[in-house]
């Protein structure tokens, strides 16, 4: 019984501060106040009508989609190579792939700033995409290589002895069986970019403002309660994303 109580208390301790933003987003207060003096939807209306907020939202979506694509292009072939073949320096390769997870974001941001600056990509959506794409490599690699490890290669042999060549084997068997794991990897890459603030602040500049960057600036300069609205929406989106990934994973483990 005690472990259960501790677990619930622990979860509450971690979640409560996050959940506080939900009532605050419906608050009538002109700044942050808890408990709220009254409830309305005014700040939601403000968020959904203000260019100042919608543009960073759109930017974040575009960047996250681009970063996700970039990550997948890097990670899918890397995971296939890593899981299916033995080669010299495999451990080192693994370490390099995991590096963005270990290096502090500020350090990465600084490094990307110098690197992307030379390529004239600072202050552009493409620059942020590339940086975010790199940052998402470890998490996507972990998910996708785990999926690949659990994948029975006899399925491909079975397809081939059924008369399917390499291409049709990939299309009809390999891809559909791996799809749930790939989607989870892509989703994580998307969320990692969508939520990222530090690198966005360094690379994005004036032109490529993402939602987290806008939030950071807004809270520093004006304490606008719209932030509570955005936070609520973000928490909702993340919860939805995690639920989707849990559903996909359940399907893929059932399949294996």
């Amino acid at each position: 019984m005690l472990p259960v109580i501790l677990a619930v208390l622990g979860a509450l301790f971690l979640l409560a501060p996050i959940l506080v933003v939900v009532p605050m987003s419906f608050s009538t207060a002109i700044s942050f106040a808890f408990p709220p003096p009254g409830y309305w939807l005014g700040y939601y209306a403000k968020y959904f009508t203000s260019e100042e907020w919608l543009e960073p939202t759109l930017n974040s979506f575009v960047i996250a989609l681009g970063a996700m694509t970039f990550t997948m292009l890097l990670v899918v072939p890397a995971a296939f190579g890593y899981v299916r073949y033995r080669f010299r320096g495999k451990t080192l390769v693994n370490l390099l792939i995991m590096a963005p997870l270990i290096v502090p974001h500020v350090v990465s941001a600084l490094a990307y700033y110098g690197f992307l600056g030379r390529a004239k990509l600072t202050g552009t959506l493409l620059g942020v995409m590339v940086a975010h794409g790199m940052l998402a490599v470890p998490v996507a690699f972990l998910v996708i290589s785990a999926t690949l490890k659990g994948y029975d290669q006899n399925l491909e042999k079975a397809a081939m002895s059924s008369g399917a060549g390499p291409f049709r084997t990939f299309v009809h068997v390999t891809l559909p069986v791996l799809r749930p794991g790939m989607l989870v990897g892509a989703l994580f890459a998307f969320l990692s970019s969508f939520n990222e603030a530090v690198v966005s602040i360094f690379i994005g500049g004036r032109a490529a403002v993402t939602l987290p960057k806008k939030m950071y600036e807004s809270i520093r300069l004006e304490s606008d309660p719209v932030i509570a609205v955005v936070s609520t929406l973000l928490v909702g989106a993340v919860v939805l994303g995690v639920l989707i990934s849990m559903f996909l994973r359940r399907r893929s483990t059932h399949a294996a």
Binding site: D152, N154, L155, K157, S161, P176, V177
Partner: peptide, 14 residues
Amino acid sequence: NIGVVFQNYALFPH
């Protein structure tokens, strides 16, 4: 034109 049955069945799960 050869059929194969594998030990772990190798059925297409999808």
